[in-house]
Amino acid sequence: MDWINAIVQGTLLGGLYALFAAGLSLIFGVMRLVNIAHGDLIVLAAYLGLTLSTALGIHPLLALGLVVPIMALLGYALQRGILNHTLGDDILPPLLVTFGLSVILQNGLLEIYSADPQKLQAGAIETASLRLGELALGYLPLLMFAASVAIIAALQWMFYHTALGRAFRATSDRQDVAQLMGLNRAHVFGLAMALALAVTAVAGVFLGIRTSFDPSIGGGRLIFGFEAVIIGGLGNIWGTLAGGVILGIGQSLGAQINPGWQVLAGHLVFLAIIAIRPRGLFPRMDG
């Protein structure tokens, strides 16, 4: 029973990891950018949720109504102001600039909020759970998992059935020709980053409700998201969800064996998958 419980809890945790991964996957798909500051942006969203929910006295999930647009605006500004200037054939500038951003964000949060762990208080729903025989499924993890699946489904639909998704795919294929269609690359990239950070905003607030957080945990969240992307296969949004769930299950099974092995077990699952299938389980795009 403990093992089944571990798999179920791991699956629910995997939804959150898929949300970490979705933003990374989207911007890599559209502009081949790997954002090292992604994890720190997740943590930033959690802190924004904290500040807004305490300042306005609202539930953290309600605060999402503000955190999401703020993060989206920040994403657009970041892309147009800084990241667009790093894109080109050379992978060094985007890597090093986002690495610099990561250090700035992390230490900026440290200055403002200190290193003390914080948590978003979601109230009674945090402890309420649904009993299925011996399994206890928390309403909150269930809700977050459902939201993650819904967000990923919406991203998939946006990518393949809307004008914006068409613009993303066209720009991803051939930036210069997309420009000839009247698509301003800088703007399209800005929109992609805005959307990615809107998803990141939800991920950050969910993270903050689930566990305590401090400014230093961004790197770890980046790695979980990245592992989910690679396990699922590049360029496949549903694959990203599968990757997140596999990572989540790997971690919770590891924790079941030895509480100290949770994160390590996840990394080992990831390394095993790149050893066996370096292009991930469901690849769709060349890296």
């Binding site: 992978i91 985007p94 790149i274």
Partner: peptide, 14 residues
């Protein structure tokens, strides 16, 4: 080395 370009970078971090 199975990871390309920028993904190699994060792989080293893992």
């Amino acid at each position: 080395f199975r990871l390309r370009g920028a993904y190699f970078a994060i792989g080293t971090w893992v």
